[in-house]
Design a protein around this nucleic acid. Sequence first.
RNA 1: GGCAGGGUAGCUCAGCGGCAGAGCAAGCGGCUCAUAAUCGCUAGGUCACAGGUUCGAAUCCUGUCCCUGCUACCA
Length: 546
Amino acid sequence: MIDRPRFYLTTAIAYANSMPGVHTLYEVIGADAVARWHRMQGHETRFLTGTDEHSVNIAMRAAEEGRAPRDFVDEKVALFKAAEASLAISPDRFIRTTDPDHIASAQEMVRRAYANGDIYLGAYEGWYCPSEGFRNATDVQETPRGTICPNHPEVPLQWLTEKNWFFRLSAYQERLERWFEDHPDFVEPTYRKNEMLGFIRQGLEDFSISRAGSGWGIPFPILEDGASAQRPDGTWHPDAGTIYVWYDALINYVTGAGFPGDPESVATWWPADLHIIGKDILRFHSIFWPAMLWSAGLEAPRKVWAHGWLLAAGGERMSKSRGNFLDPGDFVRAFGTDGARYIALREVPFDRDAEVSWDGFVRRYNADLANDFGNLVNRTVSMANRYLAGERPDPRAEGTSVLGTSWSTTLAAVQGRFDRMLLHEVLAELWAFVGDANKVVEAEQPWVIVKAVKAGEEGAEARLRGVLGDLIEACRLVALAAAPVLPTVAPRILAQLGYAWAYGADGNGGPALLDELRWGAHAGEPGQLTAPEPLFPRLEVETADA
RNA sequence: GGCAGGGUAGCUCAGCGGCAGAGCAAGCGGCUCAUAAUCGCUAGGUCACAGGUUCGAAUCCUGUCCCUGCUACCA
């Protein structure tokens, strides 16, 4: 048990069938910023992300390359981990659905649902592609030659019936409606919640949770007669089939909390505070998932947040097959770890889709990071070095400083936006304050004051120290408040200002962030600034590529 | 088809009965601490289209045209 607030958040697990794109990592970047925001506040935080590795599709892709599925997904997982490392993503656990504890977890969830009477044998029917398995009715195409699957147009589809286990979702209809009513913030943004409510009210059907055969998946733990499918030698009976990939995938969130082997950990970490997911899988997370949990005697998560998407020019969804794929390697090489994170979270509202472009990214980087903030830190450090020999003066008292007054409203707004998951607005608030600081430099003109100091004018020295103290404090506060988004640059800024960095690489271990974010929190402590060093080198405008 | 959301400056968007706004991009000027930076000013709009309600409509109502999302087992 822990004695401080805990926060358990997850991303969706990424489907390990190809290399990651920036549009996929956007969700992880956002979740990482939220995780760091909680860690820096001193909350006991658990941030789970990972990969979804089973399914007929993945087995097929591996077979196309003549490789074993495990070998195939290992390679994809390495690509995801490398891309996340380059973006300073800091999961407390990177979970894979092929992990042994997850396999045990998914099987236990099936057993519990069975014991609760929520699982029964039925027949699943649909269009079956010999290469890809059952296909969604909306994905198949009618042609003169018959019904085909777009990925394998040469092979006619068969209408097949398969004996499967079904989950009694219909039994949870009323409870789900009540849950949505009693927890109006369960799904956000609100318009997404309304879509889900509409779906529930249409009437819920049971869904299949197993597939026949011992393919690439977690062995279904129960035989048709209800007996355990595990054989004396520990292997699983192939006749039991496998757990259908959705029933497998969602369960990673309880595995990550320690289910089922560590009840104390589950008591600490479940229910999750937040699942951050894409809008395309909201139904599974907000309707199927709570029902699955209730069936197993567990609580529903506290919040599901459906974020928007990065769209290419013309509003097209980004994907590798459309050729508008944005490679995370190019992205990080161009903008740096922190620049890439900032741009992604600033250019795309966290609650909506947005069209993005390489030119837009460059403009945003130059305007916000190189010019407004990077240059503010640079000119501030430079002036303190030049005019005060690098000694750090205190800021003026909050009530007597324009910036001190402005900061109190900024901080309140930042907190509110963070708590409502509006990460783009968090940054907009902070950068409005950066603009205030740049205006203060022009209004007070330290280079004029310093001449008055040299002329021995009374009060000039105090004025100079006051202005520079305010500017240094403004830089410290913005760096700290933006640290969840700029985790590697923030410590460098504090170092230039003569402050030690008190937090670990993942944001854990330092003083409570909200104390640090008080105007003048370190007044009276002597400090020495270092030589100025550009943080975000300005980029030349490039023509669109990537 | 049904339900929901949207169409406002070159770009991204805010405003949602009371003088059309912000940021970026563009042009001009100031300043020199700074990363060709920054500060100020300017320009830029049939608020998708047509009708209606109102003293007054980007905002409310009706219709039309576009765009997007949801409408169950690819994940």
